[in-house]
């Protein structure tokens, strides 16, 4: 790619102006709105949802209120549980894919990607339907006399977990697969031949070499999971407040836009941190 850059540029290439409309679009509808969010986060909510621009840090201090800290902890916990569950379930899938025959690889790839493309509201609803009082699981359980009354699965921690994991697992499997696909599996054999236990060859050979995929997968799951509100809302019965719900409420119900803005900036910071990790992680791979 860099070879092109060394070509002497005799005159200004007018093709750079082609990027102008897209640049203006991103400035006008991506960067300025973000800037406005920053401004709003420094304002105060007035009567009936009106906004007073008095530039105080009050909204940020409010975040440290124990009520909100609890919500953050809960969101972090959900995102962490989701990421780890996706890793534990997604790694075997990626491994099976990477070691499968080309034909099976294609089939499995399609099976991983298809849910990725189905609407997540529908996926959440499908789980709600499956676990509902007279849904398939309860009907089956009662038909087989495993239990006599419908078990109240929906609106439980289990249904939220199931919704989160199935929602985000493709984001874990795909980067893991990319790393595993490039991994030279003969290295594992070599390690074994040299006397390493399978435990050691896994942790000392495989894991370090697929680190990029691991970190990318964890970031791809953790970051969006942190701000998720639809899945817990539909499957948890909107009982437990998370950052995502809290932010949405400030905009749709309470109409406290300044506080909502401050909260959403926190999410942006989380994303920026992830992005930095992701990019440095990616760069280090390029240098190898």
């Amino acid at each position: 790619m860099e070879a092109v850059a060394s070509r002497p540029i005799a005159r200004l290439d007018r093709r750079i102006f082609l990027a102008l409309p897209a640049l203006i679009w991103f400035l006008g509808f991506l960067l300025i709105p973000l800037f406005i969010v920053v401004i709003y986060s420094l304002a105060t909510r007035g009567e009936y949802g009106a906004v007073t621009f008095n530039f105080s840090l009050g909204n940020y201090f409010r975040i440290f209120d124990s009520v909100y800290l609890k919500i953050f902890l809960r969101s972090l916990q959900l995102a962490a549980v989701t990421s780890i569950s996706c890793l534990l379930l997604g790694f075997p899938v990626a491994y099976v894919m990477a070691t499968a025959s080309p034909r099976w690889r294609q089939i499995l790839m399609a099976m991983v990607v298809i849910p990725f493309w189905t609407n997540f509201v529908i996926r959440a609803y499908a789980i709600k339907f499956l676990l509902s009082d007279y849904g398939l699981i309860n009907s089956l359980g009662m038909f087989l006399h495993l239990w006599s009354e419908p078990i109240y699965f929906s609106n439980s921690a289990f249904s939220v977990w199931l919704g989160m994991v199935t929602n985000y697992i493709p984001f874990m499997i795909l980067p893991l697969y990319v790393s595993l696909e490039k991994f030279d599996f003969t290295m594992l054999e070599a390690a074994r031949d040299l006397g390493a236990s399978s435990w050691n060859s896994f942790w000392k050979v495989l894991v370090p070499l697929i680190k990029t995929g691991l970190i990318t997968g964890l970031i791809f799951v953790f970051t969006p999971a942190l701000g998720e509100f639809v899945v817990p809302d539909l499957l948890g019965g909107a009982k437990t407040m998370l950052i995502g719900n809290l932010i949405t409420e400030q905009f749709m119900k309470t109409r406290d836009w300044p506080f909502g803005s401050a909260l959403s900036l926190l999410l942006i910071v989380a994303v920026l941190v992830s992005l930095t990790i992701y990019l440095t992680n990616r760069d280090s791979r390029v240098q190898h």
């Binding site: 997604g90 075997p92 499956l130 054999e189």
Partner: peptide, 29 residues
């Protein structure tokens, strides 16, 4: 051309379970 190991049965079971978790709700729907 590198020889690829057959994944352990455990990996196969977990993978099957994962696909069941993803597809059974959609299929039921």
């Amino acid at each position: 051309s590198s020889t690829k190991p057959k994944p352990s049965r455990f990996y196969g079971v977990i993978s099957a379970l994962t696909f069941i978790m993803i597809y059974v709700p959609l299929a039921t729907l």
